[in-house]
């Protein structure tokens, strides 16, 4: 007999799948706790390969969650990455939904 799932307000399908992917979740979490960071910093903090990080950042940028700002630091081109307003709100919402979903699961 299958165990009946609880009647949650939040279902698994309500959780933002773009953020839910572990690598992107890590990137979002890293950017959530800072104002902005560059590619090198994220590379060290996440332990991802440059190609992998770049691919995930592109997806987050396409979704409007991450903004990329090009600037010059000490006359060298520098790329700053930061969560957009939408990105921050989406991450907050993701956390709320995951928490709500997990809390209502049976022991």
């Amino acid at each position: 007999m299958t165990k009946q799932l609880p009647n949650n307000d939040v279902g698994i399908h309500d959780i933002d799948r773009l953020i839910h992917e572990p690598s992107r979740l890590m990137i979002m979490a890293q950017l959530y706790v800072v104002q902005s960071a560059d590619f090198t910093f994220l590379l060290h903090q996440t332990g991802m390969t440059p190609g992998n990080l770049s691919a995930h950042l592109s997806k987050l940028e396409e979704a409007g969650y991450v903004e990329v700002t090009k600037e010059f630091l000490d006359r060298k081109p520098h790329t700053a990455l930061a969560l957009t307003k939408e990105g921050r709100a989406a991450f907050k919402e993701y956390r709320r939904k995951v928490k709500q979903f997990v809390e209502k699961l049976p022991e």
Binding site: V34, Q35, A37, D38, T40, F41, L73, D74, A80
Partner: peptide
């Protein structure tokens, strides 16, 4: 910080709720 730290581990700006 700009000459030694940043080129090695990257640059980060901490927000008001964090490191600042």
């Amino acid at each position: 910080k700009r000459k030694i730290t940043m080129p090695r581990i990257g640059f980060v700006k901490f927000g008001p709720a964090g490191g600042t």
